[in-house]
Simulated assay, not measured.
Amino acid sequence: MAGPGIASKETIVPAGQENSFDAQDVLQVGDTAFTYFRLDRVPGSQRLPYSLKVLLENLLRTEDGLNVTAEQIQAVADWNPQAEPATEIQFSPARVVMQDFTGVPAVVDLATMREAVAELGGDPARINPLAPAELVIDHSVIADLFGGPDAFAGNVDLEYQRNLERYQFLRWGQTAFDGFAVVPPDTGIVHQVNLEYL
């Protein structure tokens, strides 16, 4: 299949990935090829609101025939704003950002899964976040000190003293899990860190 400015193009579907709507395509820009998924290949997608088009693209990108099926993709394209949802669909985020009160329990869950896999004779190193994940410590910091030039540093020091075991655990998690990072409490709030840094 050739297009303007493209002498030839080959669309390769990775193993384990489906392409039921023949939506995977390649955009050639100079010497760089970008893989993307064409929404116009899914009947009914043109009338969807933007937010559902984002969801539809996510499903096309992650279709594997098991977790994400052609039926789920078509259900999104057939969305009726007047109807009650009748089909459960999968959503696979490209990245996960958590703050400490929700992120620490998630790391505990991953550690517990590793322990269970090891007890069953499996390889615990296979348990990792499916998407890159960052945990930003911001919700647990208490403003004991205020109004002085050393207040910020003093509050961070108190945070480390109060929660030493948690930080030791998170340091372990950061080295043990692939694609997992911890942003320390002296960096900023999760929304700011997400927008400016991550």
Rank of each mutant, 00 (worst) to 15 (best):
M1H: 09
G3K: 05
G5Y: 05
G5P: 02
I6W: 10
I6R: 09
K9E: 13
E10S: 14
G16T: 10
G16I: 06
Q17L: 09
N19C: 08
S20T: 11
D22F: 08
A23K: 12
L27R: 14
L27Q: 14
Q28R: 13
G30A: 02
D31A: 07
D31P: 03
T32I: 00
A33F: 04
F34S: 03
F34K: 10
Y36I: 01
F37L: 07
D40W: 09
R41Q: 12
P49D: 14
L52W: 03
K53Q: 05
L55Q: 08
L56P: 00
E57Q: 08
E57D: 04
E57R: 06
L59R: 00
R61V: 00
T62M: 05
E63P: 07
G65C: 02
G65P: 01
L66M: 08
N67R: 12
V68Y: 00
Q72W: 10
Q72C: 10
I73E: 14
P81C: 05
P81D: 05
P85R: 03
T87L: 12
T87A: 14
T87H: 12
E88V: 14
E88D: 15
E88F: 12
I89A: 04
Q90M: 15
P93M: 07
Q99V: 15
F101S: 15
T102H: 06
T102K: 14
G103N: 00
V104N: 08
P105S: 00
T112P: 08
T112M: 11
R114M: 12
R114Y: 08
A116F: 11
V117I: 15
A118E: 09
G121M: 01
D123H: 02
P124N: 06
R126P: 00
R126M: 12
I127K: 05
N128T: 04
P129I: 01
P129S: 00
E134I: 12
L135C: 03
L135Y: 01
L135H: 02
I137S: 04
I137A: 00
H139M: 14
V141K: 02
A143R: 13
D144Q: 10
D144L: 09
F146C: 07
G147N: 03
G148P: 05
P149Y: 00
D150E: 11
A151P: 03
F152H: 07
A153E: 02
D157K: 07
Y160W: 08
N163K: 10
N163R: 10
L164D: 05
R166K: 14
Y167A: 01
F177A: 00
D178C: 06
A181G: 12
V182A: 15
I189E: 08
H191R: 06
V193M: 09
V193T: 13
E196M: 14
